[in-house]
């Protein structure tokens, strides 16, 4: 459903991505791994329209993503979370998730200002949906808590709920397990598998190898902006190029 073709991007001469191609199939969990600085986050920024690629093709469900702004790409059914959770710090948990519902909203400024019945009905429906999204990620805290007061782990779950609220077909997660302990990481893996079960496709950046091996159907490996391997977990585990890339890095496979 997502096709990446010969994607290249450089920043002031530094090649962050060069000629990367891969695709994500409907209903699969696709992982992107690679050492720090390999270009993984840059890849997400290009797919979601936060950055414009210098070369290559991007298409989603048959439509090209090039030349569309970030809001239009999001409305095609792509949602993401960030390496550092990007919640609205002064807004409450439920308001953050409701912002995920915003783009689908129909009532305009006048309807909202007049407090028309249809604006109120829409708000009510959005609230129920936002609560459902919070329940889906298992957020059990109070929904009127201010986001900046949440521990980082909870912020990440709220961010996933906000992404789910946009009703995406493909969800991009940037290092969702970073900073979690083993049992929290297992719980997160359960959540991702549950989301896949519900028909969502996922593209996940992660370092945590045990987590990646458990959740992903196929793995793309990036190193210095180039794709060095692509395949099912069992094949990636034994790939000599992957082992070489990771052994030369502190972040290696030893971290399981």
């Amino acid at each position: 459903m997502l096709a990446v073709r010969d994607l290249s991007m450089s920043f002031a001469g530094l090649r962050a991505l060069s000629g990367v191609s891969f695709e994500v199939r409907e209903g699969e969990v696709r992982a992107v791994i690679g050492p720090n600085g390999a270009g993984k986050t840059t890849l997400f920024n290009l797919i979601t329209g936060a950055l414009v690629p210098q070369a290559g093709e991007l298409s989603f469900a048959g439509a090209s993503l090039l030349g569309r702004g970030a809001p239009a790409i999001a409305r095609l059914g792509l949602a993401r979370t960030f390496q550092q959770a990007q919640l609205y710090r002064s807004l409450s948990v439920i308001e953050n998730v409701l912002l995920g519902c915003h783009a689908a909203g129909r009532s305009g400024l006048v309807a909202c200002g007049l407090g028309l019945g249809r604006a109120r009905a829409e708000e009510h429906a959005a609230r129920l949906w936002a609560q459902e999204c919070l329940a889906r990620v298992g957020y059990a805290g109070r929904e009127d808590r201010i986001a900046s007061e949440l521990p980082l782990g909870e912020q990440r779950y709220v961010e996933i709920a906000r992404a789910l609220a946009t009703r995406p077909r493909l969800l991009l997660l940037d290092e969702p397990a970073a900073g979690l302990n083993d049992s929290e990481t297992d719980a997160l893996a359960d959540l991702l598998l549950q989301l896949r079960q519900s028909g969502l496709s996922l593209l996940v950046i992660e370092h945590h190898m045990r987590f990646v091996m458990r959740v992903s159907d196929r793995i793309v490996v990036l190193n210095f902006g180039e794709k060095i391997a692509d395949g099912v977990p069992a094949a990636i585990r034994q790939d000599p190029a992957v082992i070489a890339a990771y052994l030369g890095n502190d972040d290696g496979t030893a971290r399981t």
């Binding site: 970030a70 809001p71 960030f82 609205y88 783009a103 946009t166």
Partner: peptide
């Protein structure tokens, strides 16, 4: 930044 990525 995040706002545009939510389709707003």
């Amino acid at each position: 930044a995040a706002t545009a990525l939510l389709g707003v």
